[in-house]
Design a protein around this nucleic acid. Structure first.
Length: 340
DNA sequence: ATAGACGACCGCCTATAGGA
DNA sequence: TCCTATAGGCGGTCGTCTAT
């Protein structure tokens, strides 16, 4: 059995009081117990250290050599124990270490710039590692392979998992500005017949939009499946393919690629971005600090989504069903200027 | 006289074992 | 699983003894 298992740490506190006062009665008052109780505590101390510790003299209790030798070390030990028992704190300015966050290229491109900016400013000693999704992301969280997940939840979360909703987004349909379908209001049939890019990071053969279409007995023409959100707009900008994707990213990409954003002719609910973590990290002050930093940064990013710009008509309403970034005949220099 | 040590006894709390 | 009995630890009071 470990020696500490049968040792009351209060004995050390009592010893410190005795070393300070050299008086059983005064030490008892200091600890709020009776002289008798302190005397019995001294008995236990003597048995524990196998030393008298104090002897009675004309001048009062005199510590033995063993007791005097304990003075410095005892103070340090009690300080350490005090720190051990105190609530843990986290100081980002001096903290060192690494956080592993699971997110996709969408999260990396849209949210990470602001997060890294704030992290670098507030916790310059901390590092970030973005981890890709492998099979079940909840397994990655439970096995401790990642500290946090930034994602859209498409599954029930286990009881030991916490999740925080950060904000909502909607799908928009993205196509090159001179796409044959860009000049007119998109009908459901035209949408289904068009050639689509499906962004799928899991093993799903169908996306959220496809499930909605299936409810109406419809199916769209998917010609390209790819796991990257950020690549899809570039492909759409240089082909007849259209992509239905989160508006938050589409708005950012549209300005540099020259894309038209159209409300998809499919009824769909907004979807939410979530921060997800395991219960074993719930009370970790460093983890809590990171969660708050990421939450605030992401909410700010979502609120500050770039306004779509129409070079001829100025700023247009974000919620306008059809968002035309460029007119039919757009001078090349305007495209280049916006791309630059 | 004073302060500390010690014994007796009590109450409270906790852990454990055993039975319903 | 819950209840009860039991044991042990700790701190309380009170009284007494002892060293200074």
């Amino acid at each position: 059995m470990h020696p500490l298992a049968t040792t009351d740490l209060n004995l050390l506190v009592a010893l410190q009081a005795l070393l300070k006062t050299h008086n059983v009665t005064k030490a008892a008052v200091e600890l709020g117990i009776t002289q008798s109780a302190m005397s019995r505590t001294l008995q236990r101390l003597r048995a524990t250290f196998n030393d008298p510790l104090f002897v009675r003299t004309r001048e009062g209790l005199k510590p033995t050599a063993r007791a005097e030798a304990l003075v410095g070390e005892l103070g340090q030990t009690l300080d350490s124990v005090g720190q051990l028992l105190a609530s843990p704190t986290f100081d980002p300015s001096t903290a060192r270490g690494s956080f592993r966050v699971l997110t996709n290229d969408f999260g990396s491109q849209v949210f990470m710039p602001n997060i890294m900016s704030e992290l670098s400013r507030e916790a310059p000693g901390m590092n970030f590692e973005i981890v890709s999704r492998r099979s079940d992301m909840m397994d990655q969280l439970q096995q401790g392979q990642v500290d946090l997940i930034l994602a859209t939840l498409d599954q029930q979360i286990p009881a030991e998992i916490y999740a925080r909703t950060l904000g909502e987004d909607r799908f928009v349909c993205v196509m090159r500005y001179n796409h044959p379908l860009a000049s007119k209001k998109l009908t459901l049939n035209e949408y289904c017949d068009a050639r689509h890019i499906l962004i799928t990071t899991g093993n799903d053969r169908r996306g959220h939009i496809d499930l909605q279409l299936a409810k109406q007995g419809l199916k769209r023409n998917i010609v390209l499946r790819l796991p990257h959100f950020t690549a899809a707009p570039s492909i759409a900008a240089n082909s007849d393919l259209i992509v239905t994707m989160p508006r938050g990213l589409a708005l950012r990409q549209a300005q540099t690629l020259g894309l038209k954003l159209v409300e998809p002719p499919v009824n769909h609910e907004p979807f939410a971005y979530h921060l997800v973590w395991h219960s074993r990290q719930h009370h970790n002050p460093a983890h809590k600090w990171l969660r708050d930093l990421m939450s605030n940064s992401i909410r700010k990013t979502l609120q500050e989504a770039p306004e779509p710009i129409d070079p001829l008509r100025g700023w247009v309403d974000l919620f306008k069903p059809e968002i035309n970034f460029f007119p039919e005949e757009v001078p090349e220099n305007i495209v280049e200027e916006l791309q630059g």
